[in-house]
Design a protein around this nucleic acid. Structure first.
Lengths: 329, 329
DNA sequence: CGTAGCTATAACCAAAACTTATATTATCAC
DNA sequence: GTGATAATATAAGTTTTGGTTATAGCTACG
């Protein structure tokens, strides 16, 4: 077999596969794509060979999808529609600057920061708006000048021309029923998922991707059952008994739920820390980002005791508000 | 030029691009990928040519990303991590249950529905995910098959080929300090904004647009100071004394805040009602949408008393769970 | 059975992806 | 500045891949 993370297919192959799903027959799909029938036949066969799964049931004539084929159809069409969005988004990446002050705030800080931040911005600008959501989408909005400020879990260090103001660091922890024995070593997580599934953050969120990378680095392959793109979803689902989660104190706090019968436990193995950062385009807003960052740190300091209550003493080290001063970069 | 939806790149190109981002130089990326340096150089140049955007700034030697390059990096890594998950998932995909169910849930229903809905989907599918956010973005995702179900405030009646299951209706109300006299007529809202600004939902949200259209119809031009795209932002800001809002019982409930000193008052003038609907692509999931809609109605019936508490008796008429049966359309 | 329409295989061709070789450019120590 | 070093770009071949035509084998249906 090829290297472990070799790509098992190409977008072109998926595109042809989807055309076959929609057309119902390979010959018709070929016509629609302006290809010949053998080209489609080979592309499908190739896809099946490389994934190692049969996608169509050839014995039935209107060409039925197998179970795996159905699953691939869903995922492939999602993947392709995302892929098609990318290029246009990059091309329109030169927009005029809007007159009002707009901030993007990662979901997990809504409860801790949204109202005070809005109040602060309202003081500083004629018009203010605070949008909530995933940092990934906010990052694009910042670059295209649809947003002026961003507070999130990603420091976007691959992008030039930004100024970064670190706000807070917090450890990832396990959120799980209090009466379940906490795993002592990373490998115990696998055993835990036998009885209690892992409730995940979606890979659309930075948090989800960080956790995923951490697990991959530990060579842990945990089953994938339930996923959410908001801290509330993860926390509420764990509170409802659906499983356990790898999350952070702020994400738990954000949900504002009663956590009877739940406990935060340290994540076994090497620590994983989440850094929250304020980001702006460099030299466009003067000393305003610095001032807002200081304000945010002060607000967050007020929440720290509540976070320690939630997360327990194990988290004391990594959990702290950052000092002043911008990041180089 | 090629056909409108031709793919501007393939996964291999993105993979190489990401390797360059991580390695910092093309030559190093080439080594890591077991390629030669010109291969990487050409692949990157090709990607830039096909997207029509410059990705790297060659004038600086540690190879800096441009703005567009940074945006591509984020999206590309998300796309690839999704792509890599697909093949392993398909290989284990010989199950009777649906392999994957993705639902989009409007922010204002998170607290009322997210955990129970996730539990229900988890029963029905091998893997479930519930995403939160604005209905507008979910609508696009539903059409492009990134989502299978959608619960939101928009019935998307301009779009063919969907099935709609009404869930709940609720009136818009005023959320304001209890000690301020409630406006009796629409025109009194203008006077009110002299002392207390209107905290708005962003026009990106369906709720915000409905309110805006309603105000325009009443010929009211209220100043625009603070706006949010989540119910929590609006409610928290009003609770912090920043102004008053035109919102709904569910949006207030969603914030899960103590509302000391606040009251819901009826909206003066003609009533405005918000309808929450479950939407799916027609005839793709069988009777599953019907079943899920019934489940959602049952869950929502459980919070109705809490909503009546919040909204007061004035709302009794418009506030109710819908009967069974799909909408024609 | 025979025919119409689909799918699979074989043999071939052109475009792409990658290689080696070489020229050009940026950075840095001196 | 000036080489030395290490990177990127370009040019010209080679291999691989994705596509074609031609043909044979299926499947459904009258």
């Amino acid at each position: 077999m090829a290297s472990p993370d070799a790509l098992p297919f190409d977008l072109r192959g998926l595109d042809i596969f989807l055309a076959v799903c929609e057309a119902g027959t390979m010959a018709q799909a070929a016509r629609r794509l302006s290809l010949t029938q053998p080209a489609v036949s080979q592309a499908v066969a190739d896809l099946e060979r490389r994934i190692g799964v049969v996608l169509f049931d050839r014995s039935a004539r209107p060409l039925a999808l197998t179970a795996a084929g159905g699953a691939l159809r869903q995922r492939a069409s999602a993947l392709l529609s995302e892929a098609r969005q990318i290029a246009p988004l990059l091309r329109e990446a030169e927009h005029a600057r809007l007159p009002l002050l707009r901030a993007g705030l990662v979901d997990s800080l809504s409860r801790a920061l949204m109202a005070p931040l809005a109040g602060k911005l309202d003081e500083m600008a004629e018009q203010a708006s605070v949008l909530s959501g995933l940092t990934a989408s906010h990052a694009g909005a910042l670059l295209t000048r649809q947003l002026d400020l961003l507070v999130g879990a990603d420091d976007l260090d691959e992008i030039e021309g930004l100024e970064r103001w670190p706000l807070l660091s917090e450890p990832y922890v396990l959120l799980m029923p209090a009466d379940v024995a906490p795993p002592a070593r990373p490998a115990d997580l696998v055993a835990l998922t036998q009885t209690l599934p892992l409730v995940r953050f979606s890979a659309r969120s930075k948090t989800g991707m960080e956790v995923e990378r951490h697990l991959r680095r530990l060579r842990l392959d945990l089953p994938r059952r339930l996923e959410f793109d908001t801290p509330y979803g993860v926390t509420a689902s764990v509170a409802a008994g659906a499983g356990f989660a790898i999350t952070t104190p702020l994400c738990v706090f954000e949900a504002a739920l009663a956590l009877d019968g739940l406990a935060c436990r340290p994540l076994p193995g090497p620590g994983l820390v989440r850094h929250l950062t304020l980001i702006a385009r460099r030299q466009e807003l003067g000393r305003l980002p610095r001032e807002i960052a200081a304000f945010c740190r002060a607000q967050l300091a007020g929440v720290i005791p509540a976070l320690r209550d939630l997360a327990g003493p194990a988290s004391d080290g990594p959990l702290h508000v950052e000092g002043v001063g911008p990041q180089p970069g």
